[in-house]
Design a protein around this nucleic acid. Sequence first.
DNA 1: GCCCAGGTGGGTA
DNA 2: TACCCACATGGG
Length: 220
Amino acid sequence: MKPHLEDVYRRLLEAYGPQNWWPGQSPFEVLVGAVLVQNTSWKNVHKAIANLREADLLEPRALFAVPAEELEELIRPAGYYRVKARRLRNLLEFVVQRYNGSLEAMFQTPLHQLRQELLSVHGIGPETADSILLYAGNLPTFVVDTYTYRVFSRHGWAAFDATYDDLKEEFESGLPADPALYNEYHALLVRVGNQHCRKTPRCQGCPLAPLLPRGGPLEP
DNA sequence: GCCCAGGTGGGTA
DNA sequence: TACCCACATGGG
């Protein structure tokens, strides 16, 4: 039996409290972070962002003007620095050329259209695109990630072969289109995933454990 | 030393 | 479609 999405959310929020992801930062800083954090811990990304801030480069045109090799060195602590420098520059080129370097202008674009545009940038996949839309643009698009998939499939609430878009649709059709809710929900799923999903014995003390099917977590 | 982290794109069958 | 792989630094 599938619990209501609100019930899962309530349990996580009661257990952990608000996660306050990406608080007090500029939308551009969030956008940069969304690329740098790909398959990487936030701690590493923070060092890279600090380098960019130190160099006064947290602005689209300024950062795009930085030579590729220099950008690589600045973001090196975030890992995959050559790939990410390329991806970041692709995104900056898009923002500068399509929106004249204005994120404010960019986020005026209708959500679905902008999402498609972001996905067409090489190196921007669904999670990065949705993170930018939600956390930088405050637009109501749900961010799915490996933890969302892991938590929901192991509880039997999603098929093991569910796609990104399957899960995204599941959340968006089952919840009010509220950016603040999507923001917190995603952050809480990452939190519970980090804290419990790869520990053994699994699910000990997990706030979602009471919702597990009999026999414990499912495996593919 | 080993495993993993808030993914994405390319290659092969 | 379904896998498999490269990409890289830093923390537990």
